[in-house]
Amino acid sequence: MHIVDGALSAPVVIAGSAVAVGGIALGLRSLSLEKIPAAGVLSATFFVAALVHVPIGPSSVHLIMNGLAGLVLGWAAFPALFVGLLLQAVFFGFGGVTVLGVNTVNIALPAVLVGLLFRRGAASADGRVAALSGLLAGSLAIVLTALTVALVLWLSGDEFLAAAKLVVLAHLPVAVIEGLICAAAVTLIHRVKPDLFDALTPPPSASARPA
């Protein structure tokens, strides 16, 4: 859900931009120069995944997959999702200019949060634990995104309250679908390449190894 220019109040836009700058800075600090190619290719993959449309009855929704991005990228999800949103705004016209920070926070903050919460579970050796973590991460990220969008709308004026409620309601089926898809994706990664979850933030023991 992209918010457009002109709807939000100035304090909300400024606060959102400040949080986005902080998140991006933290995310960049977690990316050593060696890891930027991996982060870039993964960021490109999430950009492509957002073009996938899933049918819901006669209509369809496009995937967001910010929960999975949080699991795979950790804090780097912040700059990676920012880059995706920047490209979508500039080349597709989705979103806007002044709201870029707010839109980044709406998508990336939930991603980082569920990454911190469920990454260990998703990397678990037990397939069921991994799948469950994926399910929870995928759906919780969407619920949090919907709540953040609703919050920034509501903070911008009481007249947006109805729209804010509608945003949350409309995202509930999406949360279920994203959870199931994320669980399946984590299951596949668990079987094929379990160390994917450590690719960008290796466990302390591995990073302490002499190069």
Partner: peptide, 16 residues
Amino acid sequence: FRTFGYLIGMLLVRAL
């Protein structure tokens, strides 16, 4: 949903 999940998981594995 499962198929799309496997698809995205596979894309990520190949990406890495």
